[in-house]
Design a protein around this nucleic acid. Structure first.
Length: 435
RNA sequence: GUGGGUGUCGCCAAGUGGUCACGGCAUCGGAUUGUGAUUCCGACAUUCGUGGGUUCAAAUCCCAUCAUCCACCCCA
């Protein structure tokens, strides 16, 4: 018998958002929106479905081959559910690049899909804040974007000790690979992957990976020295490459803004997406229970150009709600949220329904959030209900009040109760809500 | 895709072969019918993810299957 019922579980890797979870999501998104709005960023959105080719071109092998939700539509077109937002953004910008006034400051909160096995911090569907600044080639863009990333975490309650922004530059790495190490082109991918993993694996394992990539002992030692060197030393020892100079300009900027302690140069930061062309960065959680990359981004100067119109440089990042929630949890920053109802209008008995409804309408018209009891219940139940839902005020109109045009207002926080003329309710309520 | 853990009421959870499967939270009802958070009383799994097997007897052992979590791979 039970076999004939449908499962109540959500699809693997997806979540139901009951009101409780939805309250958190709204709280989180609202905080994110406020932060990016403070920098003048405007919201945009695109379709959840895109042509398969949009991702095939630039997003990276694994992402496209293994983790894309894709299908053929009824017209035989290959379609994909968006696994990331940046290609959509690039497409939208490219479509109107000549009309949009630069720089373009946009943000989005899309839900994204990736087919993979769910694990801590990674599900199949998640929501991701995307913040992008397009139309600027100078490091001023990076400096603004990194400031936003920092402010987002701070405005969620994090302190500067809770996280760290680690940055590197694709051109710095390319210069290392080709000019300093003189790697063959076919070696670079494997070396890059080894560098990317370095923080998570033992030193011997790292060397082993480099051996497998056909690196000589000398190359390995040079590479290790390079990766461990402070930024300035790289310039002194290995020459001032284009990427090096860009990093210097960036750090001069953030240091002058007092953000130096939160930002650190780390030549090991690689990032997997193929379309990054310059600065790349990742924000790390410093909590011992959650030492991981929270989110990251970088510069993509060629992405818009692949649509054939003019080239528009861009910098941006994406942060997912799942990792962000993990971050807030380990740092004790989760808010305690309740529903936002100001007043419950009780129902003394069925005869009072219209009276209480009329009062509710009146108070709502004044901008209050008013919930009204619709079915007569014991008064105790009604007060209990308000208490459980965290509604601070209850209004009750019984026969006594009705005859005199009064109402009884009880404040559940203070326990105080008063009976007053219905006309005087509004100022009293407003005063009590401010407490 | 690979490896490991777990699956007992909405949630947490005791129980490891032998009467009707502890307990807590939540939910619902009640404590002389105009008032809540405390307290008290009561209700709430013929059933232990599902299917099969072993046994006189299984939530407890075995097999399969599904789900979920963690790690790897990879990475927004």
């Amino acid at each position: 018998m039970s076999q004939s019922f449908l499962s109540v579980q959500p699809y693997k890797g997806t979540r139901d958002f009951y009101p409780e979870e939805m309250r958190f999501r709204h709280w989180l998104f609202e905080s994110l929106r406020q932060t990016v709005s403070a920098y003048g960023y405007e919201a945009y959105d695109g379709p959840m479905l895109e042509p398969f080719e949009l991702y095939a071109a630039k997003s990276g092998q694994e992402l496209v081959n293994e983790q894309l939700y894709s299908f053929e539509d009824r017209g035989g077109r290959k379609v994909a559910m968006r696994p990331e937002m940046t290609p959509t953004l690039a497409r939208m910008v490219a479509a109107r690049s000549s009309q949009l006034s630069k720089p373009i400051r946009w943000y989005s909160l899309p839900n994204l899909w990736r087919y993979e096995r769910p694990q801590r911090g990674r599900l199949r569907e998640h929501w991701q804040l995307n913040v992008d600044l397009l139309g600027l080639s100078s490091e001023a863009a990076e400096i603004e974007i990194v400031q936003i990333a920092i402010d987002i975490l701070r405005n969620l309650g994090a302190s500067s000790f809770d996280f760290e922004v680690q940055l590197s530059h694709r051109e710095l790495n390319n210069d290392l690979f080709s000019r300093v190490l003189k790697l063959q082109p076919e070696q670079t991918a494997a070396v890059a992957r080894a560098i990317d993993k370095r923080a998570k694996i033992p030193a011997e394992k790292f060397e082993e990976l480099l051996h497998e990539a056909a690196c000589s002992a000398e190359q390995i030692s040079t590479l290790k020295h390079f990766l461990d060197a402070p930024l300035l030393e790289i310039g002194e020892v290995y020459g001032e490459s284009e990427g090096y100079l860009a990093m210097c300009r960036f750090f001069d900027g953030v240091n002058a803004l007092g953000l130096g302690p939160v930002c650190r140069f780390n030549a090991s930061i690689m990032r997997g997406l193929d379309y990054y062309t310059g600065t790349v960065f990742e924000v790390y959680d410093k909590h011992p229970d959650n030492r991981r990359a929270l989110f990251g981004g970088g510069r993509y100067d060629n992405l818009v150009g692949m649509f054939g119109q003019t080239q528009v440089p861009g910098v941006g990042f994406g942060m997912g709600d799942v990792t962000l929630k993990d971050f807030l949890e380990v740092h004790g920053l989760m808010p305690e949220l309740q529903s936002h109802v100001d007043v419950l209008i009780g129902l003394f008995d069925a005869d009072m329904l219209i009276t209480s409804q009329a009062l509710a309408r009146q108070l709502r018209a004044e901008g209050l959030r008013v919930e009204a009891v619709l079915q007569p219940q014991k008064l105790g139940k009604q007060f209990q209900y308000a208490d459980k839902k965290g509604i601070p005020l209850v209004i009750m109109i019984g026969p006594d009040e009705a005859t005199t045009g009064q109402a009884t207002l009880k404040n559940l926080r203070t326990g105080e109760q008063q009976t007053l003329a219905q006309a005087d309710l509004l100022p009293t309520i407003q005063a009590q809500l401010k407490i």
